[in-house]
Write a protein that binds this DNA or RNA. Structure first.
Ligand SMILES: [Mn+2]
Ligand SMILES: [Mn+2]
Ligand SMILES: [Zn+2]
Ligand SMILES: [Zn+2]
Lengths: 143, 143
DNA sequence: ATCATTATTGTAATGATTACAATATAGGTT
DNA sequence: AACCTATATTGTAATCATTACAATAATGAT
């Protein structure tokens, strides 16, 4: 998916010093595009890097966001999640299994009224409901 | 805007016991539609109700949400905000002054791809940027 | 008035995130 | 290569919103 060299190149390209921890976090994000939390990243990388600090994860993620390497999203408000897919897309959260899905949409085609004079910098689309998997399980159980 | 009797009627209508605290919270929400936080409501009502507990505010808001009296929204992830405007609308948060504005849009006209088989229960639209007021101040300062 | 149900209160706990200071590392300069 | 400064990492303590929980109070039906 993304090897160490590719990660280093990407970081240097953006002006971020490619430390070992940062490389690993960036690689993890590219290998786990399901919107992981800081804690999930920390837990996963701790196995390989026993000295890893939670603070480093937070610092790294903040750096990545400010340098435009990742986007952060807070769907529910309990945990911030990180997204390495930079292409504009919407998010669907299944309230049964908690999975966050990406979906495509033409963000700029949304017609609004009441935003005259507003400078729009970001458009965030969040849908909630039940995913096909959970929907199917529910139907089966109901029989 | 909404007097005690109106609030009581609304609560009874929805099957929520109209305690004094609940009446006051509901009234506050109707008089402050700028998406207040639990803390803001608590601080404001504490003046009048010195024995008021923060827990009551949280309980009350949870009750209101579950009975469909208000909606909650978590735009940034730091604080949950409460919205008594039940009509579907989008939110714009100014990252300069922090104000959260409502705007109108046809939510159902959004075309998506990749959500086949998903049961959509809620559509949340959040824009961020700079509001006209802050935009104007910035321009003036720049002269 | 009695009694069971429900609401309120206060305090303690939780959990994600931030603040901060000490230590370690990286990369440029001599 | 050794040196030095800027930057990154680490560990711990603090913060802040929210929740858990148990005691007390109020409500509404009988
Ligand atoms: Mn995504
Ligand atoms: Mn609103
Ligand atoms: Zn699901
Ligand atoms: Zn503003």
């Amino acid at each position: 998916m993304m090897n160490s060299d590719q990660a280093a190149t990407l970081l240097k390209q953006k002006g971020v010093r490619p430390s070992y921890q940062r490389l690993r976090v960036l690689q993890y994000l590219h290998e786990h595009i399901g919107h992981p939390t800081a804690e999930e990243i920390f837990t996963a990388l701790s196995v390989d890097i026993p000295t890893l600090s939670r603070t480093t994860i937070y610092n790294t993620l903040h750096t990545f966001v400010s340098y435009g390497l990742v986007n952060c999203l807070t769907l529910d408000g309990v945990e911030t999640r990180y997204d390495v897919v930079l292409q504009k897309h919407g998010h669907f959260k299944c309230h049964r299994c908690g999975t966050i899905f990406n979906f495509m949409m033409d963000v700029d085609r949304i017609e609004t009224s009441g935003l005259e004079g507003f400078v729009i910098e970001n458009k965030n689309i969040i849908f909630t409901g039940i995913c096909p998997d959970c929907s199917f399980k529910k139907t089966k159980k109901g029989e």
